[in-house]
Design a protein around this nucleic acid. Structure first.
Lengths: 191, 191
DNA sequence: CGCGGGTTTGATGATGCTCAAGCCCGGTGG
DNA sequence: CCACCGGGCTTGAGCATCATCAAACCCGCG
């Protein structure tokens, strides 16, 4: 719980008393490796603030191939935004890649907190800004960079992902196959 | 101006009187075709609400090739979010593809409106939600779909872009070359 | 008529995918 | 202590997709 308090206060200012109220809107839960927070076709009822562990969001195409859309570790929010906000069935799965400790919050509780604490609205605005910036960058890379450049910038920007997820997942996140990534790394090693 | 009023009231509720205040924070301006709202290396001081016209955001790589990142038409916001929020030099250009009527607003004025009208914070939160959803979808397509599927879903989702931007721009937006798009269309026509 | 911007087309080549096989390594159970 | 198994990584051969470059074409406009 303390991690959430520290996290919020990175972006805005929330008193100890307010936090005592805020924290009641969250449910503490544990997820075992491979356990799902969200399955394909379900509605995303909760987003998870990760206290410990690593998760991923991916979608499975007609051929059964997994495409990793997002990776999450400590102090990130996991879930499917579209399904969460619109209350529509998700096309994604979200599951634990490592055993996790998470804090769940429902859409209704998010709305309540927004109304009750302006600082919470502030927080959400800032998170959205950061998220918009990061996603836009990723899109730019995805559209205009080669696989090699994408991988290099990934390693530079997210070394902690490289350390915690296997190559075939990182490859999928970058939009390439594990085979291509393997060859790419071999080539880059020869420098 | 009326368009902005209607636009805001699609997402939240703002009285006529409040709007009279809000609108003073915007600057009405006209842009000629090819005129820049933002040049590479500049800081994005204003975002533009488009009353009339079409714009694009793109970045130019070392080889001088343009990569279109976003397209905008009436009732969209044009600018570079990253540069606008962080006040850092932008890697993108934003210019008018058609002659435009726009309403400009500065970062300071956005912040003032946020403080002054909770409805404005509401609005921004909702816009960010929608934006996050759309960008995430686009990223999913970009990572996991073939050029053909990306183009098909583009035509389905954004017919008004297809009508107003030439093919080489749409190709760039989709992350392919104009040549490939041309061949693709030829193939799809034979059905 | 000529020009500029946009599109098409062909030939060629690079990039990344597919599929299958083999390897490595840590964990489990006999 | 060894055998086996599963998950992950590597590698090779062949192939599909898409990029590159150059040429030609089309058409609206001054």
């Amino acid at each position: 719980m303390r991690a959430l308090f520290r996290y919020i206060n990175q972006y805005t200012t929330v008193s100890e008393e307010d936090f005592q109220v805020i924290k009641r809107y969250f449910i503490h839960e544990k997820l075992k490796k491979k356990q799902c927070l969200l399955r394909e076709g379900e509605i995303c009822r909760y987003v998870a603030f990760i206290l410990k562990g690593a998760m991923r969001q991916y979608y499975v195409d007609e051929k059964g191939v997994e495409h990793v859309i997002n990776l999450f570790v400590e102090n990130w929010w996991a879930g499917d935004r579209e399904s969460f906000v619109m209350a529509t069935p998700s096309i994604y799965l979200v599951d634990a890649w490592e055993d996790c400790d998470v804090l769940l919050i429902s859409r209704e509780n998010v709305l309540k907190l927004r109304r009750q604490f302006t600082a919470f609205s502030e927080l959400l605005l800032k998170l959205d800004e950061r998220n918009a910036i990061a996603t836009q960058r990723r899109l730019t890379y995805s559209i205009s960079f080669s696989a090699e450049l994408r991988y290099k910038s990934f390693v530079d920007n997210y070394p902690y992902f490289v350390a915690r997820f296997p190559q075939h997942i990182i490859a999928s996140y970058l939009g390439i196959t594990k085979d291509t990534l393997s060859r790419l790394r071999k080539k880059l090693a020869g420098d």
